[in-house]
Design a protein around this nucleic acid. Structure first.
Lengths: 135, 135
DNA sequence: ACCTTTAGGATCATTTTTATCCTTTTTAGT
DNA sequence: ACTAAAAAGGATAAAAATGATCCTAAAGGT
């Protein structure tokens, strides 16, 4: 239950790989995919989206590739996860839609708490922390 | 992301409904399904499983149905959720299998924390609490 | 021009989710 | 015994999500 999909895993592995490179360094998609052991075509989609969201810069043509668009310390795990998986919500009940049976639904408040806890944890972790090599 | 499926929702609504009845009361599947607004055939599967797990007693034949097998205060939300959705694990990394890349994987510890928090919350909520009418 | 590399769109296979149906078994009541 | 009621169990199926792959276009460097 409540599992991150491959897409989410790939996204994290991909951006963490980028964050491990010297700042501003441009890496090829093929290089990232190989290093992080994931399908390049799938990662392409993820990174295209990251580019739109301003997490990474993309450069076409010879010498092109991707680089981090902001300091790794300024990108949270939550941002990355939500970018690919959508808002963190343990069930429909706690999305922006709200809960039509919230009057009777006590479970509602439980999911709300779960959501807050998870969001809180993921907000507190940056890509920079994840990218650090052994202490 | 991290959403409970319909099955999980139905399971909770179904067992909470049972818990609202006077203790030991036997309810028909059809009655529960109607009251909780969910497909009876689907709920049947869920409750068959609940019977095996000892959450409910089932009785066949005329006058049959389902009743809670133990006090609602002795059934946690976590137990119900895990019964239908499987172990709570934000990703593969934190299942009993372990993480083959855990050496390099710092994200691992984050998922572990998430898992602990969620499990902690769901462990702390009983069906009895959820079944209480307005305070 | 030509090659490299990402962008974007379409497509597709697999798996999971969300059921439904049918037959069998059990039980109660007559 | 017979019958009706109700859950058990198994098979099946439609729909949606997931996990990719492929192809053409656009952009950039040499």
């Amino acid at each position: 239950m409540m599992e991150l999909t491959r897409k989410g895993e790939y996204a994290i592995r991909g951006i963490v790989h980028l964050a491990r490179l010297p700042h501003g360094n441009v890496a090829l998609l093929s290089e990232i995919a190989e290093a992080a052991e994931l399908p390049q075509t799938f990662l392409a989609k993820i990174f295209q989206n990251f580019a739109k969201l301003g997490f990474v810069n993309s450069y076409r043509g010879t010498g092109g590739g991707f680089s981090l668009a902001r300091p790794a310390a300024a990108i949270t795990l939550r941002q990355v996860v939500e970018a690919v998986e959508g808002p963190i919500a343990p069930n429909r009940c706690v999305t922006e839609l709200g809960c039509e049976r919230s009057a009777t639904c006590r479970v509602h408040t439980v999911w709300r708490r779960v959501q807050e806890q998870v969001v809180g944890i993921l907000d507190g972790v940056t890509i920079e922390e994840l990218a650090r090599e052994e202490d």
